[in-house]
Structure formats: C-alpha cells, structure tokens
Design a protein around this nucleic acid. Structure first.
Lengths: 152, 152
DNA sequence: TTGGAGTTGGGATCTCATTGCAATATTTTC
DNA sequence: GAAAATATTGCAATGAGATCCCAACTCCAA
C-alpha cells in the first residue's frame, strides 16, 4: 500500500513556493484524508466542512483545491457530471493513478488498479514525438449490480 | 478510411425515433461534416453558423448536439476546458474512437489512432464483472513543437 | 513584536448550459 | 394537397459551477 500525504507534506510544499500554511488549507486536506477513495467536488468539501462545524468560504475551498492540485497533493478528475472532482494523489510521482469504471446506468464510479498503458505510451512517443507525462482513462459500461437488476 | 455519416443517415435515425428532420439539425450536422477532425463546442458551432449566415438559436444548437449524440452520430468529449465538445462518430459502432493527446503547454489536442485496450477491458470484466461498453483515454504531456520551443 | 506579503470571506459577476412557453415548422392523415 | 396532430424553434429567464474583487484579516520572517 502506497503511503499517503500528511499535513507536514503540505507545509513543506507550501513553504517551497512562498505560500502560507493556513488552518483552512489544512482542514481541506484533512477532509480528503478522512475520506479516502472518494471523489469529492468543491461543494462536497464545503458541505463536509459545515458538518464538521469548520465553515470555510466556498471561494476559499475552490482556491485551496486548485492550490493543492498545483502542489501535486490532489488530483483533479472530470467525470462529466458537470463539476470537477478531486482525490488524493499517490505519493510516488512515478506511479500512475488508477482507472475509473463509470456505470452508465447508476453513475457509480468504481476504481480499478492496473496499468497496462506503458507500452501504449512508448508507442505514442515513438510515432508522434509527444512526451506523455500522465494519462486519464475512463471506462463506461454497466456495473455488476445494474446487470443483475436488469435481469428482473 | 472509415465512411462517414450523411444527411440521409440523420434523416433515417430521426424517423426511427419519431423525430423530425429540420433545416437546423441538418445544418448543425453539416458544420461537423465541413470541419472533419475538429472538436467543436456549442459556441463554436453557433459561431460557425453565424459566419455561414445561417443563424440558429443557441438553445437549438445545444438541443441538436445532444440529440445527435443520442442518435450516435456525434460523440461528446470533455477536455476539461470548461465546455463540452463534440466530433463526428465513426460509422462502425464496433470500432472504438481514437485517443487524444493533450499538450499541457499549448493545450493543443492531437489525435492518435490505436487501440491496445482490448486486453485491459477483458481483464476488467473478468476481475470486476463490469461490462465495458466504451472508453475515453486522454494522455497529458508535451507536444513536439513545445519541446522544440522549450530548448531555446 | 511588527511590518509586509499572502490569504480569507462574501457578494457580485461570469460562463456554460437548461428550461418554459408561445409561435412556428414538419409530418401524417384524410 | 390541405388540415390536424405533434414536434421543434427561439428567446428570455433561470440555474449551476466557478471565478473575481476588495476590504479585513492572518501568517511568518526579521
């Protein structure tokens, strides 16, 4: 299991860029650490903060999410549901993140850990000269539960 | 080279669903046929229509794009630039569409024709029971031109 | 401790997209 | 070929997600 980011990592990365450590930024990261494996939107984070009675301005949530992404701590993902979502990045920068299986019936998002795209990336670089730094893969289909439900 | 859709295909598919053929829908499809390989947003299409002096209400453009997607004639793609984009689908439904290489420097989108994901899809189905119907793959990196520009 | 730079909050604002409805156009039926 | 039935259009109003502006505030290095 890969190690995960800590509040100390956040502090270090902020200092490297002359940014300040604030309780707001710390709390936003904590929300993600408290909800591993979830794909949270800005509104989600804002709501969870309210539940924790640590109200933070929505604009600040948006700014924190963008900053945490720039610092490489969060990963921005688009599922096509109209809003940007985020998840904690893997600590190892050489490791590509997992793929997402999106059910077109119930909109559930399942994670899938496997990476067979190394060969494809080499192929792309050889044929087009494009240097691949990262990829996002989404598979659309029908999840097990919806298949079962559809048989009734 | 795969064949492409025609206005007649549009008419046929509309009739199958009790929808009507209108000059607006025909013109929207024509825009895509006139601009092969481009990834047009609703605003793009609206602008191109104005240039052609065939002004169509923006709401109608949105509705046409959604309808053409439902009919399988257009393919909706999200590049994460804030708006939905569309391109003409391949006529052969068994053929997966191409991948997109997105340059993180200049935001250029390059197409790449190759599909090595068949094995991965079988693997997913075996391990999770998820039936894959389609996929979207985006590679992020630096294009040839930006690499050259960066060497200066 | 203090000064200066960075940050916050809240409302105003922006953009992309959707909806309601009256007017209009297309297709079906006779 | 005309009228009825139904779908579609256009425009303005509305909605949702996200960003901007700026005065007040907080953090941190000296």
């Amino acid at each position: 299991m890969a190690e995960t980011f800590t509040i100390t990592d956040l502090k270090t990365r902020l200092q490297e860029r002359q940014h300040k450590m604030t309780p707001q930024r710390q709390t936003v990261l904590q929300i993600f650490l408290d909800h591993p494996g979830e794909h949270l939107s800005a509104e989600d984070v804002h709501g969870l903060l309210r539940d924790k009675r640590s109200e933070i301005g929505l604009a600040t949530v948006y700014r924190s999410l963008e900053l945490l992404s720039e610092l490489g701590i969060l990963q921005k993902i688009e599922f096509g549901d109209g809003c940007s979502r985020y998840e904690v990045n893997t600590l190892d920068p050489t490791q590509h993140h997992h793929h997402h299986l999106i059910c077109t019936k119930c909109d559930k998002v399942i994670e899938f850990e496997e990476d067979l795209l190394e060969d494809l990336e080499k192929d792309i670089q050889a044929k087009t000269g494009f240097i691949v730094q990262d990829h996002q893969v989404k598979f659309f289909g029908i999840c097990k539960e919806c298949q079962a439900a559809g048989e009734n």
